[in-house]
Design a protein around this nucleic acid. Structure first.
Lengths: 139, 139, 139, 139
DNA sequence: GTGGTCTAGACCACC
DNA sequence: GTGGTCTAGACCACC
């Protein structure tokens, strides 16, 4: 389970969105895997259910998860639709940050290093909702 | 002159900070160059002077500009002091974005291209306080 | 509750920052303790809410308090991050004042005495948001 | 000659006051020694004469210098009058700063070290209006 | 209810 | 003229 920082300037629902997005991107959460229910996650994180709800709604709008009434929320397969547009936007954001970082001394080597570290599955798989679950699935 | 998006979730003062920071980073605004006065920019952008004031204060606290009472606001020379810490934070942000972009299809070549474009003075000098003036002077 | 000097050269928001910082430093305000809300303090001190807001923002930027949107402002645990730099600056200021004081007759013994008095909790707990309350609770 | 920082938040006249005060305190400027005339200092520092004037007026009010019409401005002998009161005020300021520094990690040893460095004449006599003058007086 | 942003407009300090 | 502070009051986001 992941950490939330109640003191952060970033609203809790947004922190949740980012964390879950990260888990999906790093393929710790696999396509069609079920997310914890709003109630469960709410009590696990001691966060208002409305806040979880809002995070899930946001993730759905962004295409990272889909919701089936009465069943739950699930990780989307890669969403091909708006991919291109999103990537284009991301590239712009990345360029801005890199420009600022160059101004502050970033080198090409630094960037290469960052790129290497940014690859999924090479990370120490720190965050996960329920590592035990995986064992269960192996039965 | 640059555009502000009044409807954006991002506060106006923050948009201003980002835009001006960009102009400084891309060296369109040179060190010791004077920024438009609070009042002038305020009426140019039809934004309350207090909001401009706040943006300038923020930029000063971040070390991008300095203010002389009774004279005006000016672009700082690069601020070496707390650069390192800032750069470290930036690197983390960049890594996150790159990870997300890789998920959406970013290649190493894309990143190289972005890095090249991120260099100052190679950009299409889009934003400026008074672009027309420069053109006029070239006649 | 503390006094503000409206006639002072020192801006009200800065007086507020200094006073609250003092309360935190002397541990009259404890870590994670909630500060009075912007509106409450505003009406208590008959000062505009914006001015209180600004003081709180300043304290947050300096790392003395943290703010949770929709909940309130709270005293930070000690901020280890940029402590060192701040301390270095402080030392310079202290040295200047001591030099001036030596000129006016300050002795080593005086300084020792000051040092002893500067320790938290040994002070006559003068300033507090609600001193009466505490006394009442002791009955 | 000393440095002024036009970029500082501190008004120029105040910087002047502090610098000259420091020279007097450290006895680089001796009692009854004549200060440079407003005009001379004004052109030396490329600062508006009004600003110099204001600094001198301030120093006079604080008792550090005295002015003789038609002759110039001179360093006061130690001003016994308000000494005690000033020292008391200074002690309060020092105590506040020390309290803050303790909060940030200042030790007794640090303070001892600061005290040693604060002694006059042990400093590398950096600032002076006109070191040449002293040589002249030796004739 | 809580913090955060913004406007309109006044007044002060500095140069 | 320039930046800086402050008030009065509105409206939004978060919880």
């Amino acid at each position: 389970m992941f950490q939330l920082d109640v003191r952060s300037r970033k609203p809790i629902y947004e922190q949740l969105v980012d964390k879950i997005k990260e888990l999906i991107i790093n393929q710790i959460l696999k396509p069609d895997e079920q997310l914890p229910s709003v109630r469960v996650l709410s009590s696990q994180l001691t966060v208002n259910p409305n806040t979880i709800q809002r995070a899930y709604r946001e993730l759905e709008q962004q295409g990272y998860i889909y919701s089936i009434k009465g069943k739950g929320n699930f990780v989307s397969k890669i969403n091909i639709v708006s991919n291109e547009q999103k990537l284009t936007e991301l590239k712009i954001d990345i360029q801005k940050l890199i420009a600022e970082a160059i101004y502050l001394g970033l080198t090409k080597e630094d960037l290469y290093e960052i790129y290497e570290k940014a690859h999924p599955n090479k990370k120490s798989g720190s965050a996960s909702f329920s590592p035990d679950k995986h064992k269960t699935q192996m039965k």
